[in-house]
C-alpha cells in the first residue's frame, strides 16, 4: 500500500521542466536518422538546447569520448561572452548553427545544432568535465546551451519545430517501420 502511494507521488509531481518549460523538437536533424534535438522554452522565452532521449548518443549503452565546442578553427562556443542586461557580445545563431561535436567511444561523431535563432548566452561547461551528465540527465544538467531569442521572434522561432505530440507520433512511426523491417 505504502509503496503504491509513494510511487504515485513520485509520478505525479511535475518536474521543474514540466512546470516552467515547453518542449519543442526537431527530428532527424539535417536528414540524419534519429538525430533528434529537444528545445526547452521557458515562459520567459529563453531556450535550453538539449538532446532528445531518442538521440543515437543516448542509445545502446554508448559512452562519450569527447565533447568539443570548437566548431571550426576560428570559432569556439567556449569563447562566447555576454555582458550586461542586453547580453552584448553574445554570438548570434541561426537555426542550423552548430553548437558542438560529440564523439562516442565507438568513434561515431555527432554535431549538435542550435535549432532556433537567437543569441547564445552560455554553453554547458559541466559536461566537458563530466560527460556522464549528458547521458544521465540529458534534459536538465546535461543541457548543451542556453539561447535567448529576440523578443519579437519569441513565438515564431518554434514554428518550424515539432510539438511533443507531433514528435511522439514521429517516434512511434519510426518504431513501426523498424518492427516491420526486422
Amino acid at each position: 500500500m505504502d509503496c503504491v502511494e509513494q510511487k504515485d507521488t513520485e509520478a505525479k509531481a511535475p518536474s521543474v521542466v514540466d512546470r516552467y518549460y515547453t518542449r519543442w523538437y526537431r527530428a532527424d536533424m539535417k536528414g540524419k536518422a534519429c538525430e533528434d534535438h529537444c528545445i526547452l522554452q521557458h515562459s520567459n522565452r529563453l531556450c535550453v538546447v538539449t538532446l532528445a532521449e531518442t538521440h543515437p548518443i543516448l542509445q545502446n549503452g554508448r559512452t562519450i569520448k569527447s565533447i568539443n565546442y570548437q566548431i571550426s578553427t576560428g570559432c569556439s562556443r567556449l569563447n562566447n561572452k555576454v555582458s550586461g542586461k542586453s547580453k552584448r557580445g553574445g554570438q548570434f545563431l541561426t537555426d542550423f548553427a552548430p553548437l558542438c561535436r560529440i564523439t562516442c567511444s565507438d568513434e561515431t561523431e555527432y554535431t549538435i545544432y542550435s535549432c532556433i535563432r537567437g543569441r547564445l548566452l552560455e554553453v554547458n561547461e559541466n559536461i566537458l568535465e563530466t560527460p556522464n551528465l549528458l547521458m544521465e540527465k540529458p534534459s536538465t544538467e546535461g543541457y548543451i546551451a542556453v539561447i535567448l531569442p529576440k523578443f519579437e521572434e519569441s513565438k515564431s522561432i518554434t514554428e518550424n519545430l515539432l510539438t511533443r505530440e507531433e514528435f511522439e507520433s514521429v517516434v512511434s512511426k519510426r518504431s513501426d517501420v523498424q518492427s516491420q523491417t526486422s
Binding site: 516552467y20 521557458h42 520567459n44 522565452r45 529563453l46 535550453v48 555576454v82 555582458s83 550586461g84 542586461k85 547580453k87 548566452l121 552560455e122 542556453v146 535567448l148
Partner: peptide
C-alpha cells in the same frame, strides 16, 4: 549561483 534561467532574460549573466 549563476543568474537563474527564470530571470536571465532580463538580468546580466
Amino acid at each position: 549561483q549563476k543568474t537563474p534561467l527564470r530571470v536571465l532574460h532580463r538580468r546580466a549573466l
